[in-house]
């Protein structure tokens, strides 16, 4: 192929960007899901012991 370095750099950039964005999003999603679950579990426990109000959303 002619101009191979230019072609490889372009494809590398696009694939690198896709990996960076999708891995970033996946990690963030996993971390947030865990944090939210932990937070809601402690709140849920507090509710059960405490006021005993009904479920929310």
């Amino acid at each position: 192929m002619t101009h191979l370095p230019y072609i490889i750099t372009s494809y590398g950039l696009a694939i690198g960007l896709a990996l960076f964005l999708s891995i970033g999003a996946a990690l963030r999603l996993r971390r947030d899901r865990a944090r939210l679950a932990a937070l809601e579990a402690t709140r849920g426990a507090g509710r059960a012991r405490g006021t005993g109000q009904g479920e929310t959303a």
Binding site: M1, T2, H3, I7, S10, Y11
Partner: peptide, 14 residues
């Protein structure tokens, strides 16, 4: 490949 640009036309696909 393109008739005048050769293989560098493949950069178009990204």
């Amino acid at each position: 490949a393109d008739w005048q640009q050769g293989d560098s036309v493949r950069i178009m696909y990204v």
